[in-house]
């Protein structure tokens, strides 16, 4: 699946959800969320320049990176294009987990599937990529990606919210559709029948001082 095209014409939904309920979105985060990005872009530039992550964080915490199914060693040379699939993970246990790490001393163990450096980037334009967040990355980066906004099929989100209806209604502080406030319950009902691609952002309420 690829969600590309003019992403700005989509219906936008902005949810304000209590921080403790953000983990509701974990199934989406590990299966893959579609996000807008200026492409082509190196993985390093996407993470640091577009997502605003510190290079130290990327180096020390995102220990396994997989681009289109290939483990990446050099984030500067691995290029994201429209429709790319990028998975981010912390360090994993086991021999395979060690071998899959960036620049692992065991990198030759998975040499047959390692990502080969991509060609140089050309002029950028907006596109979409699928980002998968595994393990510690879900908690670390999930809130940032959700706040920035993801592209999602309304039917998928409706099914998901129906399954978690009670919790959603308890934890949802506000819903805005195309910047107009609607009741969470109304939103759930209307979502049930829809089948369109939405631009969904989820933010926690501001912290009380």
């Amino acid at each position: 699946m690829s969600l590309s095209g003019d992403t700005r014409s989509r219906t936008s939904i902005a949810l304000t959800l209590e921080r403790t309920a953000l983990s509701l979105f974990s199934p989406f985060l590990q299966s893959g969320i579609w996000v807008r990005a200026a492409l082509p872009s190196s993985v390093q530039s996407f993470l640091c320049d577009q997502m605003g992550l510190e290079p130290d964080y990327v180096r020390e915490r995102i220990l396994s990176i997989v681009l289109n199914g290939h483990p990446v060693d050099n984030t500067e040379k691995a290029l994201l294009r429209d429709g790319s699939r990028l998975a981010l993970s912390s360090g994993m246990p086991g021999l395979a987990g060690a071998a899959l790490r960036r620049g692992s001393p065991l990198a030759s163990f998975r040499g047959s599937i390692t990502h080969r450096d991509s060609a140089a980037a050309g002029p950028k334009q907006e596109g979409t990529i699928c980002v998968k967040l595994f393990n510690l990355m879900m908690g670390d980066l999930g809130p940032g990606f959700l706040a920035r906004g993801i592209l999602i099929n309304s039917e998928a989100i409706a099914r998901f919210l129906r399954q978690n209806r009670a919790l959603f209604l308890e934890k949802c502080r506000s819903v805005q559709r195309n910047e107009i406030a609607i009741e969470p319950a109304t939103f759930l009902e209307e979502m049930a029948d829809g089948e369109e691609e939405l631009f969904l952002s989820v933010i926690p309420p501001p912290e009380r001082p």
């Binding site: 997989v66 199914g69 998975a87 912390s90 994993m92 998975r110 393990n135």
Partner: peptide
């Protein structure tokens, strides 16, 4: 202090490997 033995394994156990092995087609 190590992210595998101090965080990933305690939080998710060894089954934390499923997603990444699947992602790389292994």
């Amino acid at each position: 202090k190590h992210s595998v033995t101090g965080e990933a394994l305690p939080a998710y156990g060894t089954n934390v490997l499923t997603n990444i092995l699947n992602e790389v087609g292994g």
